[in-house]
């Protein structure tokens, strides 16, 4: 079947079989290398996408369900200031995730900061818990998310560094 959808701002017509998962179709047809299908059961958190603005695990979405939807993967955000700030905050807080969970963690943080501009520690941990990789120290990660939120708010409200 042919699935018409919008991926990272461009209209696409993707070829898929009835049982295909969205993650496989996006990776195989569009070479979106940020998606790392691993557990294929929604547990590892390495295949996050925004589907019509909601953060979803693309391994749990049948490809045909994406018909007509708007998909944004990490590739759509990687050059945006929001992501650059998250990466900078991670570096500053010594919270460097491994290459396997990096995009998953960034997507989860992006989603959180979009909903909650000044998240509390519990909120952060709950959000990061969706990415099951214990490569990074959670204390440093919480610190990094706090720093990223700070940078984002300063930029958004045009506040200079004190």
């Amino acid at each position: 079947m042919i699935i018409d959808l919008n991926v990272n701002g461009e209209p696409k017509h993707l070829q898929a079989r009835s049982g295909d998962r969205l993650v496989d179709v996006l990776r195989d047809e569009l070479s979106l290398s940020s998606l790392l299908p691993d557990c294929l059961s929604g547990k590892c958190g390495r295949c996050f996408i925004f589907m019509d603005g909601r953060l979803v695990l693309s391994c749990l979405v049948p490809a045909f369900k994406a018909k007509g939807s708007t998909i944004q993967s990490y590739e759509a955000f990687k050059d945006m200031p929001d992501v650059k700030e998250i990466i900078l905050a991670m570096e500053k807080a010594e919270a460097l995730p491994c290459a396997f969970c990096r995009t998953g963690k960034i997507m989860a943080i992006l989603d959180l900061l979009g909903r909650s501009p000044l998240p509390e520690e519990k909120e952060i941990l709950k959000q990061l818990d969706m990415v099951a990789c214990s490569c990074t120290d959670p204390v440093s990660l919480v610190k990094a998310v706090g720093m990223a939120a700070e940078m984002r708010n300063k930029r958004k409200f045009n506040r200079a560094d004190k």
Partner: peptide, 8 residues
């Protein structure tokens, strides 16, 4: 499939 048992 999960690499940890303890939730964050």
């Amino acid at each position: 499939l999960r690499d940890r048992n303890l939730s964050l």
